[in-house]
């Protein structure tokens, strides 16, 4: 990391000064708001979550230690396995349906000689819309009564479907919305990568008689690969935390087929008022997601550009 090297160079050039307490006081005064807030909002709650997962807790307060009882009850609940299977399905579906879309769009938008910035703005637009507002509209697009999607497919003679009420269709239907919501942001990141590719490379490839597809395969995609890998890890992290979509569209149904870990945490904590089990859930999620997050941090450090 560039920071580390800057540090060592500084240390080499300057002899170690005696600690200047006046500067130290200023330094810590500047850090104080951040330290207090992070302690209150992040570090203390993280510590509490781990503690709660071994206690019986409700909104009214802690009732005592229960050892691994919360974890036992969580693992004994068949919903645990359903929820993590759902998460795996969400992730795989979103990679299958959504991860190629931004690459293709970015490539095409970058190639357009005119209208390029128009399409770029358009694709980014859903990112700016509050998720809940978009979901309210999408819910009616998918609705069994007067849903416009069924109406549209009816023109082509396709039977009306219960998009969000059929366990086989609900997850793909939600992933389509996730793609609608999220692709634009990723497109911008790929576009910034595409603009860094020196045009001379394409010039040389063209002179050597490489076709457009070959140029994409041999020049464009390798240049994007670092970004693609990072975005893939980020996608896994984001999709695993899906909450608003199932909360608003399906409430986890039908038959728990769209229930996600966060939705389960929310229901356990705020509807069943069992913060202990909710915390056990949180810890299991924290362990799994932290692994991916650490992977992300390492990859990002390796390729500083994103």
């Amino acid at each position: 990391m560039s920071v580390k090297t800057a540090d060592t160079i500084e240390n080499m050039n300057e002899p170690r000064l005696r600690i200047n307490w006046k500067t130290q006081r200023t330094a810590y005064l500047f850090l104080l708001p951040a330290l207090v807030l992070f302690a209150l909002i992040c570090w203390y709650p993280i510590f509490k979550t781990i503690l709660f997962s071994f206690q019986e807790v409700s909104l009214q307060g802690v009732r005592g230690w229960v050892g691994f009882e919360n974890y036992k009850r969580m693992l004994g609940n068949p919903v645990f396995y359903t929820v993590w299977r759902n998460t795996l399905n969400y992730v795989l579906l979103s990679i299958a349906m959504g991860s190629m879309v931004p690459i293709v769009l970015a490539l095409m938008i970058n190639e357009m000689r005119r209208l390029s910035s128009f399409f770029q703005t358009l694709v980014y637009l859903p990112v700016l819309i509050p998720v809940v507002v978009a979901l309210i509209v999408w819910r009616q697009i998918y609705a069994p009564e007067g849903g416009i999607l069924n109406g549209l497919l009816g023109i082509f003679g396709i039977e009306p479907q219960l998009w969000l009420q059929n366990p086989a269709l609900a997850k793909p239907a939600i992933v389509v919305i996730m793609t609608w919501l999220g692709a634009g942001g990723t497109v911008l990141i790929y576009l910034s990568g595409l603009r860094e590719i020196p045009p001379e490379l394409y010039e040389a490839a063209e002179l050597d008689g490489f076709s457009v597809l070959k140029r994409i395969w041999l020049i464009t995609l390798p240049h994007l690969s670092a970004r693609i890998k990072i975005m893939l890890v980020l996608q896994i992290i984001f999709v695993s935390q899906v909450f608003t979509e199932p909360f608003i569209l399906t409430a986890g149904g039908p038959a728990n087929s769209t229930r996600s870990p966060v939705l389960e945490i929310y229901d356990t904590a705020f509807n069943q008022n069992n913060f202990g089990i909710a915390s056990a859930w949180s810890v299991s999620m924290l362990v799994i997601l932290a692994a991916f997050s650490i992977l992300y941090v390492f990859m990002q450090k390796k390729h500083q550009e994103v």
Partner: peptide
């Protein structure tokens, strides 16, 4: 601070709400 970024905020929602 870097490690905090790696912990999803949703995982400690409950104690944060209580605080």
């Amino acid at each position: 601070i870097l490690i905090t970024m790696a912990v999803p905020g949703i995982a400690y929602l409950v104690p944060r709400y209580m605080i």
